[in-house]
Design a protein around this nucleic acid. Structure first.
Lengths: 109, 109
DNA sequence: TGTGTATATTAGCATATATTCATATTTTAT
DNA sequence: ATAAAATATGAATATATGCTAATATACACA
């Protein structure tokens, strides 16, 4: 067995494949910013428009819009339109679960 | 009831306190980098020295040392000394759990 | 004490990221 | 068609982040 194959096999359980690594790090990166955490937290229980989010969290409309685009690209949020208003909700139960878990853990420690 | 108190109360369940927000975002930030994920993943099952990590993951010793310091500051890893060699292990079951969950989820989707 | 080995630290650089301002786009209602 | 309201976008800026080379430190042992 040549060295490369050997290394491949011996590392099978220690290496993550590139694609998984990419997805996992992106997921955590999305949750690694206070503004995005606050937005997602606000969307825990009910939908909010962009302006509602901006007002409740004291952020610029532009900031909220940028972060929502980020979250939407990762399919972590979705929206429904009502006239000119867009109501955003979360769209990834797994990620919301991670966030809830971690908030719980941080609060009780 | 004055406006400030009113706002405080109505926002009680929508706002995260500053300290929790800080801890949560730091935790996710730690997991939001491919290199740190690979290191933690390598430490899932057994301890590794700095050089072992560097060799297995094809990273510079300096890079590994820097990331280990980062992880140690957050108490995500610890080490034992054996002569001049430091063997690192993970040191936060909750965070390792988050990582395992997310890797599992990413692989089966 | 001197030498080799393992790890840590410092400084510099390049890239990534978050926010803001200004402006554009989209939709609705008149 | 035009105006108003809500949201999105682009560009600029400031800061954060990760990597690297070079060097320093810590430990073991002759």
């Amino acid at each position: 067995m040549d060295k490369q194959s050997e290394q491949f096999i011996t590392n099978t359980h220690e290496n993550i494949d590139e694609e998984t690594l990419f997805v996992v790090s992106l997921t955590f990166k999305a949750l690694g910013d206070p503004t995005r955490i606050r937005i997602l937290h606000l969307l825990f229980n009910k939908e909010h428009s962009v302006n509602e989010i901006a007002e409740k969290l004291q952020l610029k409309q532009s900031t909220v819009s940028h972060q929502l685009r980020f979250l939407k690209n990762l399919r972590l949020v979705k929206y429904r339109r009502a006239g000119t208003t867009l109501y955003y909700t979360h769209d990834d139960e797994h990620v919301i679960g991670l966030l809830k878990q971690t908030i719980e853990h941080a609060m009780h420690s």
